[in-house]
Design a protein around this nucleic acid. Structure first.
Lengths: 138, 138
DNA sequence: ATTAAATAATACCTGAAAGTATTAATTTAT
DNA sequence: ATAAATTAATACTTTCAGGTATTATTTAAT
């Protein structure tokens, strides 16, 4: 729950790569480290290439490295590219159930933690993991 | 996402019932108000009966009323009975991926909003909806 | 007694996400 | 040139939450 398994995998892949961004990593390397189902992992890597986060080198000594600077890749963008951020931005009970003029019972309960979560996602980059800089919490 | 559709339905059912707790409501009544798929709604009502939140009266003038006082029913208990609270209490990337001694990349990001959310769930009852008392946000 | 209107139990269906399989394309080492 | 090691594309399979269908049971009005 909370985030899809696919987003979960994507985050694990990219955060691991971020902590080792100097080195090109192959699908095999990542599989050994992350234990994400191999074929699924390979597909996700291709997806992440297409999305422009990483770039692939094919052929015998191929593998993946980041296509962009780490400090430009926000956690929000990663989730957004995989499953979209919209579901996180609406109310827990969905926007149709929770119109602005008559908020649902969960609205207040969810509003604050949601904002905190989204804010952090939108202000934290992969570079923040490396720098050891404390991740901003609110 | 975030909470399952089934929890979503359960919350909508119980919060609506809470705002009308004086009156016995049938599945038909609730269907007309909530537009949850009829047969699914009926099954959920049976589940909520078994869980002890509401009690059913069968037969011609049957329907549902609360089985317990509203101020004893916490939002956390509702979600817990439907899908369990555990997934909400662990880390975003799952506890196997995020061991205590080596927290995952998302751990810090999620920790604070998670606590706020859970705290509110655990301290808010259905009675708080009726009383109009401001729901505690942190 | 019969019928209508309600809940209960249980088995089945469906669509989408997660995961697998197969084959093609690319590159480098030999 | 050939083979080995990699990524790419695409189609297939599996699983499960969400939703349906069917039939049984209970109760009250007539």
């Amino acid at each position: 729950m909370f985030i899809s398994k696919t987003s979960e995998h994507a985050l694990r892949i990219l955060t691991y790569m971020a902590l080792n961004y100097e080195t090109q990593l192959s699908a095999r390397n990542l599989f050994e480290e992350l234990q994400i189902p191999k074929r699924y992992l390979m597909r996700l890597l291709t997806d992440l290439s297409k999305s422009g986060f990483i770039k692939a080198t094919r052929g015998r000594s191929g593998g993946y490295v980041f296509a962009r600077s780490l400090d430009t890749i926000y956690f929000s963008e990663i989730i957004d590219s995989v499953e979209g951020l919209l579901p996180f931005e609406g109310c827990v009970l969905g926007s149709s159930v929770c119109p602005v003029d008559k908020p649902c019972a969960m609205h207040q309960i969810w509003e604050k933690p949601k904002q905190t979560f989204l804010e952090t996602l939108k202000t934290t980059t992969l570079a923040d993991l490396r720098s050891g800089k404390n991740i901003r919490l609110q």
